[in-house]
Design a protein around this nucleic acid. Structure first.
Lengths: 135, 135
DNA sequence: AGAAACTTGACTATTTTAGTCGGGTATATA
DNA sequence: TATATACCCGACTAAAATAGTCAAGTTTCT
């Protein structure tokens, strides 16, 4: 089990941004350098963050991104959802015949994965971006 | 984020076994049919479960596997460890130069992933195989 | 003896991941 | 108004992981 780098980088980049108090836009180029993440990969990530209203973009010279809301209001769960890293951990897919083993009834471990999802989501729901930079 | 099928199947197969009260060995062939899992894939899985002392094998005709201990004493965390599904969720690898972004210091989100690991592991530590079959 | 069932290593197709490439468009500033 | 800076975006790809299969055993019950 592993989170993917996109989610990880997204959190790192946003935490980087949140560390700056002034509201000047921050360019991906700067984040790229500070966090050692490829600029073009960051662009992919920020596109999704923007679509999900987590950041706003300012184009042109001296442009960049700013957080769309205060760091204390950005839940980590939002970030994962934005990147389609839906923290749905496991199969039991309703659409697939393989899900729940092709049975009409729930598989023996179905509820377990549901509980696990709740457990993990609760963690991310309660974590705010601001929590990361307080220490 | 997704658990792999090996871990999922392992839990399903063990839960299947735990559902039988008598202590006769259960053949992988039977589990394979009941849970719709390829026999040969189950063999791979049970090899690991055996090495980690979660099941015992009885060879020969009427052989099969039995749980090495009572279902109420088998923690799900054991099962994941047995399958090398170490619930270490994220990078920040001490050995890799990429980990923590090649910095000597911890990356900005390092503690977050540590916390998440603890959170998930706690879930599996507290879940016993028996809990799955009670309902 | 023969069948049932475990044992084991090697192999492979598919999918996912983690990016790169290359061509845009918008805007501030000189 | 030229140009550099920075966002925008779709398509592509190499490498790794996943989810198995295949083949050839060994052991033990009946």
């Amino acid at each position: 089990m592993r989170l993917n780098t996109k989610s990880r980088y997204a959190v790192m980049a946003l935490a980087d941004m949140a560390g700056f108090k002034d509201s000047r836009p921050i360019s991906l180029r700067d984040i790229s350098i500070r966090q050692s993440i490829s600029l073009q990969y960051l662009e992919q990530i920020f596109l999704k963050l923007k679509k999900n209203n987590i950041v706003k973009s300012i184009r042109g010279t001296n442009g960049g991104y700013v957080l769309a809301k205060n760091a204390c209001h950005i839940k980590l769960s939002e970030i994962f959802i934005a990147l389609n890293e839906n923290v749905k951990t496991i199969g039991c897919d309703k659409h697939s015949k393989k899900g729940c083993n092709g049975r009409s009834t729930k598989c023996i471990t179905h509820n377990l994965w549901d509980e696990l999802d709740l457990h993990i989501n609760a963690f991310f729901e309660n974590k705010k971006l601001e929590d990361l930079i307080k220490n």
